[in-house]
């Protein structure tokens, strides 16, 4: 298969201030992440809050500029392109945000909102744009007669449909879906998940699906990358990851999810402690402070992502 997106050693550090001694304090939100996404593939990026998954998604689209590393889109390195050069790629890669209330301009009718990306990229005449808006609204389950309404007239689920319509307007190849169902009620969440699956098939989209909910990730993704404190600890095709998780963190994460079946009650291993601060992450393997299997080497040396079969990659001294 052909790779549509590939990132190599991507880093995004945020400067948050200086210590009393004048030393820079950095949050290493994404700290050396490498992965690829094949054409028409859905890659799930999962992890707990603060692990850098959203930053990673935004850095790939250059919504925020990465500190270091390379991003390839369709084989071309886009990590150093200027704003102007980047423009022709922007219409091919879009994002759907988490918060359906905060991500739409309250003063813009939804027709204008959905048409805006076409306007920016000068795609088609006004009339063609309007036709496209109506066509796309029908595709995402909105009614064309709602075109002149404003965001506050819509429910959360419908707003998320507007966000999806807007992302699809320029006919992109690649979409980053950032926690796009997390804020929705369960019955609405299922509707949006099904919609995304249908659209992905119909348009042959490639997706980076960023989420913290492993059940949703399992349902929708082909392959999964697990992040912990700015690093990828494991990547594998869906079934490999869920049936044979290798990294102790992935195992704990899977075990922590409450299963909607009272017969499964209490059958879990519980990870102790909290996620350490990304300002001053632990030495060696970043998971060693919570790992039940920790060895001396884990505290000293950082494990790299390795694979025995070129499919299932793990960054753990005990596995490799």
């Amino acid at each position: 298969m052909e790779k549509l997106v590939e990132v190599k050693n991507l880093k995004k550090w945020f400067l948050i201030g200086k210590s009393p001694l004048g030393k820079k304090e950095l949050v290493k939100a994404v700290d050396g992440v490498s992965f690829y996404i094949e054409k028409k593939e859905i890659l799930g990026l999962v992890g707990e809050s603060g692990c850098g998954k959203t930053t990673c998604g935004k850095a790939i689209l250059r919504i925020i500029n990465p500190t270091a590393g390379e991003i390839f889109f369709n084989g071309q390195d886009i990590s150093h392109l200027s704003r102007k050069e980047m423009l022709k790629f922007r219409k091919r890669m879009m994002i759907i945000y988490q918060d359906p209330f905060g991500s739409l301009d309250p003063r813009m009718s939804i027709g204008t909102t959905i048409a805006e990306p076409m306007e920016v990229h000068k795609i088609g005449s006004k009339k063609e744009q309007e036709e496209r808006v109506i066509q796309i609204m029908e595709k995402v389950g909105l009614f064309p007669d709602q075109i002149n309404r404003f965001p506050h007239e819509f429910s959360g689920g419908q707003r998320q449909r507007i966000g999806i319509a807007r992302a699809l307007a320029t006919n992109p190849e690649f979409i980053v879906a950032d926690e796009c169902v997390s804020a929705l009620d369960v019955s609405i969440q299922a509707q949006i998940i099904n919609l995304l699956q249908n659209l992905q098939k119909e348009f042959g989209l490639t997706l980076l699906f960023v989420a913290h909910d492993l059940s949703v990730i399992k349902h929708i993704c082909d392959r999964i990358a697990v992040m912990y404190l700015g690093k990828i600890v494991e990547t594998a095709p869906k079934n490999d990851l869920f049936n044979h998780p290798k990294h102790p963190y992935t195992q704990a994460l899977l075990s922590a999810i409450p299963i909607p079946d009272p017969k499964m009650r209490g059958k879990r291993e519980i990870l102790m402690g909290d996620v350490p601060s990304p300002i001053n992450p632990p030495s060696g393997c970043r998971f060693h402070t919570r790992c039940p299997l920790v060895k001396q080497i884990c505290k000293e040396e950082e494990p790299s992502l390795k694979s025995s079969n070129n499919i299932h990659y793990v960054a753990c001294h005990l596995v490799n």
Partner: peptide, 9 residues
Amino acid sequence: LSKSIPRLN
């Protein structure tokens, strides 16, 4: 409700 949630198992 019970059928609309994705499940791990």
